[in-house]
Design a protein around this nucleic acid. Structure first.
Lengths: 146, 146
DNA sequence: TGTTTGTAGTTAGCTTGGCTAAGTACAGTA
DNA sequence: TACTGTACTTAGCCAAGCTAACTACAAACA
């Protein structure tokens, strides 16, 4: 249990996760493109739909990108009718983003598409392995990879 | 364990894995920018270094992108001294790409940095969580996501 | 032989989505 | 009132994805 042994194990895990993330993302990106939602939009819209209305700043923090990036992403999604803007009565600098019905619908559609692809892969795994993946995703979510 | 319950669990897992992969790669990509090797370059250079010299077309297929994308990527990497071009005697349309010593060196460096950056994040987790991630990475590896 | 068809790669031009720097508008406070 | 901080936008740069159209060459064949 030296620092070295422990460190090497972590590095190995990191290496594998890195590789797995690249492959997984490439895989689903193909299907996401068909739904008309880019990877960035899909991720952001998920936050809005499942987490309720959020401000630009909250979304930027959730997505681990800068404010201008979210600002422009929000403009595009508003233009395409996926989200709506709403001012804040208490603080007029703040912008709240809320998913439109169309946005929710399209997200559900994209999500479903993604699942049909990934589920085919995950379905061959024993339930125990699927549980491990579920838990791993939760752990990574909790890491706030910023 | 109805189809529904099982399906929903898979949906949730797929969704979380997707989100985690996006955030993880965004995180390491940002880190790479500091070391001068973008995510795309790192991946392509890995193919060249560990797989030996490849043609533009082979690299495009390996990276699952179009020829123009690789063509421009190769131009940039050649300009920066990471790879060298070489013609093919038998077929003069073909271009072979080979990593330079500098390219190999920079790849090893960037890859190590990228992985160690990730490892630093994982280090704060309890050993049990790290084991879960390790196991999850192995499971994903076995899925052949390519 | 010459022509046609196919293939490898490049060029041009568009789009998205990262970034920083600088600006606007407002809130909070001394 | 003036100053400082905060929330967001605008402007502009860059990388990396794409399609369409081009060049150069290879291969097949009438």
């Amino acid at each position: 249990m030296s620092d070295n042994a422990s460190g090497d194990a972590i590095v190995d895990t990191a290496d594998r996760l890195h590789s797995a993330a690249i492959h997984l993302l490439r895989r689903v990106a193909r299907h996401d493109a068909q739904s008309g939602l880019s990877s960035a939009r899909l991720s952001a819209l998920s936050v809005i739909v499942y987490g309720g209305p959020v401000t630009i700043g909250e979304l930027a923090r959730a997505e681990q990108v800068t404010l201008p990036t979210i600002s422009r992403l929000a403009q595009g999604m508003e233009r395409d009718g996926l989200v709506e803007r709403e001012g804040d009565d208490a603080d007029r600098r703040v912008v709240h983003l809320r998913a439109t019905e169309r946005g929710k619908c399209i997200l559900r559609d994209a999500r479903s598409r993604r699942v049909h692809d990934l589920a085919d892969l995950l379905a061959v795994l024993p339930a125990e392995d699927r549980a491990t993946l579920q838990r791993a995703a939760e752990i990574l979510d909790g890491l706030s990879l910023g």
